Amino acid sequence: LWLVHLVRERLTAAGAPAGAVQLVTGDAEAGRALTTHPGVAAVSFTGSAAVGHRIARDAAPRKVVLELGSNAALVVAADADLDAAADAVARGGYYASGQACIAVQRVIAVAEIAADLERRIAERLPGIVVGDPREEDTRVAALIDEAATERVLTWIDQARAAGARLVAGGTRVGRCVAPTLLAEVPDGQPAWDEEIFGPVVALRTVPDLDAAYDLVNAGRYGLHAAVFTRGLDAAFRALDALDVGGVVINEVPGYRSDVAPYGGVKDSGLGREGPRFAIEELTVTRMAMIRP
């Protein structure tokens, strides 16, 4: 509401009509009316895959730009700087309490360094401040509601029952979920397969980089993925092999820049954001021919 107010002030000051920006609030019924109205030329949506798929069906044949869910992977090669990789997991996996579509959720480590990496990540977790989100140092606070909290804790318990090892966390801290690290979560578990949207990171071990890239691609999401390596060969292999919208080398998958296209493939969405790319997505290319 405040952002729209500020934009309208700027528009008016520039001599443009304030009505160029509109805001409608409401529930699913309001959203359905907007996304299906014949006067709407395009729909841009950020949210869950299930809702995005419904909007794409309902809005047809209008253009849709979908930025949907993810379970972003961070691959660690044998030659990686392990301290940098562990710092990235601690920084990129738990910010905003993990409630970000490109937060680190899956860490895939080559076997020869996996145990060392796990130890380094675990050593960093006690330094993640849990508490009041109004405090500047807080990294993990209460999730959006109690239902989300119970779901995250249930997924952790299900993963453990299926054979995953709890390295740290997995409990409540007041109304918050403690920063959690799981190891060897098997396929078929939502803590690995789905978007957990909470302060939980799952670590898996693979024999080599090819297996790591295959594991990234095996999931239904494909927004951003990160690779930590000192080798340009491994980096360029990732650019070719990973079926995602963005590949980030030696930084968190949550890296974004407005000069770069942002968006996913598969169930992570359709189309690209970023000012230039959003303009292109929402522009109709018209062919014109004049015969003299």
Rank of each mutant, 00 (worst) to 15 (best):
P186T: 00
E29D: 14
P253S: 07
I55Q: 14
G15T: 07
Q158A: 11
R172M: 01
L242E: 08
P275C: 07
A142I: 04
L223G: 08
A73D: 09
F197P: 01
A73C: 14
E194N: 14
V43S: 05
D243E: 15
L11G: 14
P38Y: 12
V252I: 15
A168I: 01
T180E: 02
Y95F: 13
I290N: 14
A13Y: 08
V244R: 02
A50I: 10
A114C: 08
A114D: 15
V51Q: 12
W2N: 11
I113D: 05
A238R: 00
A42V: 05
E251C: 07
T171H: 07
G69W: 08
A115V: 13
A183Y: 02
F236R: 13
R286C: 09
A260W: 13
V284Q: 11
E195H: 04
L143M: 10
L3D: 08
D145M: 11
R291N: 12
E112R: 15
A218M: 02
A77C: 14
E281F: 00
V129C: 00
G69P: 10
V43C: 06
V7I: 14
T138K: 03
V130K: 03
G93P: 09
A72L: 11
D214M: 03
A14R: 11
V216L: 13
Q105G: 06
A13C: 03
V65C: 12
E112H: 14
G26H: 09
L3H: 05
G274F: 04
R62G: 12
G219K: 00
C101V: 11
G26I: 04
V89W: 12
D208S: 12
I113S: 10
A225Y: 02
S257D: 12
G219Y: 03
L215M: 13
F197S: 01
G263T: 08
A56T: 13
A85Q: 07
I249W: 07
A103E: 04
D210R: 15
Q99D: 12
L1W: 06
L153Y: 02
E281A: 07
S257E: 10
L203P: 05
A96L: 14
V140D: 02
E9F: 01
A235Q: 11
L232T: 11
V265P: 00
Q189L: 09
P199A: 09
R151Q: 10
L239M: 10
T283L: 10
R134D: 03
G222M: 08
E9S: 09
D137F: 01
A50F: 13
L34Q: 10
A234T: 12
V21Y: 00
P292L: 10
A191H: 06
V107T: 05
R119W: 04
T283Q: 07
A72M: 13
D79M: 12
V227Q: 09
F277H: 07
D258V: 15
G19M: 01
G170M: 05
A86I: 10
V40S: 06
N217F: 04
V110E: 15
H37E: 09
L282H: 13
I144C: 05
D79Q: 13
V259Y: 08
G174I: 02
A147F: 03
Y213D: 04
A241C: 11
L68P: 07
A59S: 15
G39K: 08
A30Q: 11
T36F: 04
L242S: 00
V173K: 01
G274Q: 03
W155V: 00
A225P: 00
H224K: 00
V248D: 00
W192N: 06
